[in-house]
Design a protein around this nucleic acid. Structure first.
Length: 669
DNA sequence: AATCGTCTGCTTTTT
DNA sequence: GCAGACGATT
C-alpha cells in the first residue's frame, strides 16, 4: 500500500511529480524539495501501474543514489523499490558495457583505470614518444584527452602534434590492456548504443521512464546517452538548477539545461521556487547576486518564513584574524545559545584556506571535520591490494600489473620491466603477454627468467582458483596475500610498527568488505572491484558513521552543494580568490558567481560573509580587495559589522535564549 | 633501493 | 610557504 501523499506537495511540486509522459524539465532551485519530488514521482509512476523495473533514475554520486533509494523505500513497497534502477551515470554505463562491450572488440572482464592509472600510462607514453626538446605536461595531456573524448574528437592520423600522438597511443594501449577509463565508460556506451540497434533496442525496452538528477552538471556524452535511451518515448524527466552549475571546468554543459527544449521538444516546464530551507534575508541576498548572470532561466527563491537575521559582512585585517574571529565566534555562539557544533559550517574557495581555520578551532578545542581532501583509496596498501585483485580478473591491464609485479620484491627489476614493456609495445600486446612469451623470457638472463616464470605461475594459479564458482573470493585473496608475505613487506617498508599494523588493518578491512560483498551478491570478485572503483566515497562515509561527528564542518563551496547548515560562514570573499583570478582570465566569472550563490543558499538561519585586507599568498603578505560580487548583494539584507565592535560585545543575537540558557544552568537543570 | 635535497608552481574534483 | 616531483647521492 502506498505510503505517500501528493497533498504533502505544493502545487508546482505536484505537477512535477504527476507529469508522467513526455519531456519534463523541473527547475528546482536550492532547497525547494527536489529529492522529495523525484522520489514522489517514482512512487506515483508505480502507483499508476508502471512496472518499477522500467524506471531509471540517474544521479551523479553514489551518495545521491543511495539517499534516493532510502527515501523511496520508506514510501513504497520494498520489493518494488528494489526493482527501480537508481544509479550513477558511470555505474549505469558499466552495467551496459559489462553486458555488451564485446561488440566493440573488448573483453567483458575489462578493467577500469582510475586517474592515477591514467596518468601513469600517459607519462610512459610521453617519455617514449617525445623528442629530446619536446615537453608535454602529463596532467595537461590527460585533461585534453578527457576533453577530446567528451567532445567526440578522434586523434589525428598524420601531421600530428605530440599531444595528438599521445592521445592516439593512449587510446590504443588502453584497448590493448583491455581497460577503459572513466570517460570511456560514457563514450563506449554511447558508441555501443549508436552502432548496435539491437543493443539500443534492448535497453530502450528496459528503461521506459527516465529521470536525471542534477541535469545542469551533465556533459555532452551524458546528454547523448540520455537522448539515445529516451528516443522514442521521450519519457524523460530532468531535474536541475542552472544557477547551481559549478562544474563547467569538468566538462559540464549548462546549455544542456538552458536549451532543454532544443534537445527534447515541447517539454512541460515546472519551476520550484518555494524554498523550505532559508530565511528571506538569505534568499534575497542569493537572488540579488544571481540575477547578475546573463544566461539563465529567471527564478526567484522565496520562503513563507520571515526575513530572519540580516546577512553580516565582516572585514578582517588579515586571514589569521579572520580565522581567529570565525573560530571564536562559533565558540561563543555555541556556549551562549547551545547551538550544537554540527550546526556550523565554514565555506571557502580552496582547500588551502582550511588550515588557518583548523589551527584556530583546535586551539579552542572545537571539534571539526574536513570534508574532502585525500581519499582512503590513495593509500598504498589499499591500491596494492586492489591491483592484485584486478590482475586476477584481468592480467592484461598493465597499470595494475606494473603496480604489483615487483611488490614485494621478487627479482623482477625496473630495468627488466622496462624491457618487457618495450617488447610489448613492439608486439602490440599487453605486458602480461610479454611475460608469458617464451621468446621474451629467453631474451633475459636465466635468473630473471626464472623470477618471471614464478610470478606468472603464481598469478595463473590464483586466477584459476578465483574463476571457480562457489569458492569464497575473500579466502582466496587472503591466501594470496599470505603467500606473497605482504604483511612482512609492510613491516619492512614502514617506519613504525604502528604504521605497519594500521596498514595491515586496512587490508583486513577491505578483505572483510569483500567477504560481505560475496554474501549479498553473486557477482564475485569482479563485481566487488566494479563497486569499489566507482564508489570511492564509501570509506569516508564509513568513517563518519563510526564517529557520527558532532562537529563544525570545514568545506569547499563545491563540495557543499546539496548540503545545508543552520549557520554558515563564507570566508575569503576577495577579488582574485572568489572570483578566482584564473576564472577572470578564462572568462568564467559567471560560474564563480554561481559558486557563491551555492554557498549562500547553504545557510538556513544565519549567514556571515567575510573578507580580508591582507592575505598570506605564496608565502608573502599581499593586499586584497573585497570581491566584486559583494556590491551586487541586496543592501536591504546586508549589515556591515565592525570586527572590533563585535569582539567587544559578548553576546549579539538570540540574547533571550542565551539568558534562558544561563538561568537554566544556574538552576541546575 | 631508499633517502635526501632542490626545484617548481600553485582552484574547484560528483565518477 | 609548502607540498609534490624528480634527480643526485649513498
Amino acid at each position: 500500500m502506498a505510503r505517500f501523499r501528493l497533498s504533502d506537495l505544493n502545487d508546482a511540486q505536484r505537477i512535477a511529480a504527476t507529469t508522467t509522459d513526455g519531456p519534463l524539465l523541473i527547475l528546482a532551485g536550492a532547497g525547494t524539495g527536489k529529492t522529495r519530488v523525484i522520489t514522489m514521482r517514482v512512487a506515483y509512476l508505480i502507483a499508476q501501474g508502471v512496472d518499477p523495473a522500467h524506471i531509471l533514475a540517474v544521479t551523479f554520486t553514489n551518495k545521491a543514489a543511495a539517499e534516493m533509494r532510502e527515501r523511496l523505500g520508506k514510501m513504497i513497497d520494498a520489493a518494488d523499490a528494489k526493482k527501480v534502477t537508481m544509479s550513477t551515470f558511470h555505474a549505469l554505463c558499466l552495467r551496459i558495457l559489462r553486458a555488451g562491450i564485446d561488440r566493440l572488440g573488448y573483453k567483458n572482464n575489462f578493467s577500469i583505470y582510475d586517474e592515477g592509472d591514467q596518468l601513469g600510462l600517459i607519462k610512459k607514453i610521453i617519455t617514449r614518444t617525445a623528442a629530446r626538446d619536446e615537453k608535454l605536461d602529463p596532467n595537461i595531456a590527460k585533461a585534453s584527452i578527457s576533453k577530446a573524448k567528451n567532445n567526440g574528437w578522434s586523434p589525428p592520423h598524420d601531421g600530428e602534434t605530440l599531444a595528438g600522438a599521445v592521445f592516439r597511443r593512449y587510446r590504443d594501449e588502453l584497448k590493448t590492456a583491455n581497460a577503459v577509463d572513466f570517460d570511456d565508460l560514457l563514450l563506449l556506451t554511447v558508441q555501443l548504443l549508436n552502432e548496435h540497434p539491437d543493443v539500443r533496442q534492448r535497453w530502450r525496452e528496459r528503461f521506459r521512464y527516465l529521470m536525471v538528477d542534477e541535469f545542469q552538471d551533465t556533459n555532452r556524452l551524458q546528454l547523448e546517452l540520455v537522448r539515445l535511451l529516451a528516443d522514442e518515448r521521450q519519457n524523460i524527466a530532468v531535474v536541475g538548477d542552472d544557477d547551481q552549475s559549478i562544474y563547467g571546468w569538468r566538462g559540464a554543459e549548462v546549455s544542456n539545461i538552458l536549451e532543454f527544449e532544443h534537445h527534447f521538444p515541447n517539454p512541460t516546464v515546472v519551476k520550484l521556487e518555494e524554498n523550505y530551507r532559508s530565511t528571506n534575508a538569505i534568499l534575497g541576498t542569493a537572488n540579488s547576486l544571481i540575477k547578475h548572470n546573463p544566461r539563465r532561466r529567471p527564478k526567484r527563491l522565496w520562503s513563507s518564513r520571515g526575513d530572519g537575521e540580516k546577512v553580516r559582512l565582516i572585514e578582517s585585517p588579515n586571514d589569521r584574524e579572520e580565522g581567529q574571529f570565525v573560530a571564536e565566534e562559533i565558540h561563543r555562539r555555541h556556549m551562549d545559545t547551545e547551538e550544537p557544533w554540527e550546526g556550523f559550517a565554514v565555506l571557502f574557495r580552496m582547500n588551502a584556506q582550511s588550515r588557518i581555520l583548523e589551527e584556530n578551532l583546535r586551539r579552542l578545542q572545537i571539534p571539526y571535520r574536513i570534508v574532502g581532501g585525500k581519499s582512503f583509496f590513495d593509500r598504498r596498501e589499499v591500491k596494492d591490494l586492489i591491483a592484485y585483485m584486478s590482475v586476477l580478473v584481468n592480467p592484461e591491464a598493465d597499470a595494475n600489473l606494473l603496480r604489483i609485479i615487483n611488490t614485494p620484491a621478487r627479482g623482477i627489476s625496473a630495468a627488466t620491466v622496462e624491457t618487457a614493456l618495450q617488447w610489448s609495445v613492439r608486439q602490440k600486446c599487453s605486458l602480461w603477454e610479454a611475460l608469458r612469451s617464451a621468446q621474451f623470457v629467453a631474451s633475459v638472463s636465466a635468473r630473471t627468467g626464472a623470477s618471471i616464470n614464478a610470478f606468472v605461475e603464481l598469478i595463473d594459479s590464483y586466477q584459476i582458483k578465483i574463476a571457480e564458482p562457489l569458492t569464497e573470493p575473500s579466502a582466496i585473496v587472503t591466501k594470496l596475500i599470505a603467500e606473497i608475505e605482504y604483511a612482512t613487506e609492510l613491516r619492512r617498508s614502514c617506519k613504525t610498527a604502528e604504521e605497519a599494523s594500521a596498514r595491515e588493518g586496512n587490508i583486513g578491512d577491505m578483505l572483510r568488505d569483500l567477504a560481505a560483498f560475496a554474501q549479498r551478491s553473486t557477482k564475485g570478485l569482479p563485481g566487488f572491484l566494479d563497486e569499489i572503483l566507482l564508489d570511492q566515497e564509501r570509506e569516508e562515509e564509513k568513517q563518519e558513521d563510526i564517529e557520527k561527528k558532532k562537529a563544525v564542518t570545514l568545506i569547499t563551496m563545491h563540495a557543499a552543494k546539496g548540503l545545508e547548515f543552520r549557520h554558515v560562514y563564507l570566508i575569503g570573499l576577495e577579488e582574485g580568490l572568489l572570483p578566482h583570478e584564473r576564472s577572470k582570465s578564462e572568462g568564467t566569472i559567471d560560474e564563480e558567481r554561481r559558486l557563491l550563490y551555492v554557498g549562500i543558499t547553504r545557510a538556513r538561519r544565519t549567514l556571515t560573509l567575510s573578507y580580508c585586507r591582507d592575505r598570506l599568498k605564496f608565502g608573502s603578505v599581499s593586499p586584497c580587495h573585497p570581491s566584486s560580487f559583494i556590491k551586487e548583494l541586496a543592501p536591504e539584507f546586508l549589515e556591515r559589522v565592525d570586527l572590533k565592535k563585535l569582539l567587544a560585545t559578548p553576546v549579539t543575537e538570540v540574547t533571550g535564549k542565551s539568558r534562558f540558557a544561563q538561568m537554566r544552568a544556574a538552576i541546575g537543570g
